[in-house]
């Protein structure tokens, strides 16, 4: 995957978002917690916006279930499997 793409990771619960955050922090990953974009889901919570190598990140997230993930380029979102 091209290195300049960003990713949005959606989780089922805020609990999982925060579990993911704990691991991302430990890994020193580049990420931010942002509101779930309305065009991706009707959820009213937060998700992870990732500015890092997704393969490495998937590994560091261990058994946390990622509900959906998207690659972001400009305004375009493409659903991807991490």
């Amino acid at each position: 995957m091209p290195g300049n793409r960003r990713f949005i990771l959606l989780f089922r619960t805020i609990h999982d978002v925060l579990r993911a955050e704990k691991m991302l922090k430990k890994e020193g990953a580049r990420y931010e917690l942002v509101p779930v974009p309305r065009n991706l889901s009707s959820d009213c919570g937060m998700c992870v916006r990732l500015d890092d190598d997704p393969a490495r990140i998937r590994q560091c997230l261990g058994d946390i279930e990622i509900e959906k993930s998207f690659a972001v380029e400009g305004e375009a979102y493409e659903q991807v499997e991490l």
Binding site: T13, I14, H15, V17, L18, R19, L33, V34, P35, V36, C44, G45, M46
Partner: peptide, 21 residues
């Protein structure tokens, strides 16, 4: 209000619950 909104105070409230859990 924890985990209900996208703003900082909602997130901080959710963090309190997460850490306690």
């Amino acid at each position: 209000n924890p985990g209900r909104s996208g703003h900082t105070l909602s997130l901080e409230a959710a963090r309190v619950i997460f850490e306690t859990r």
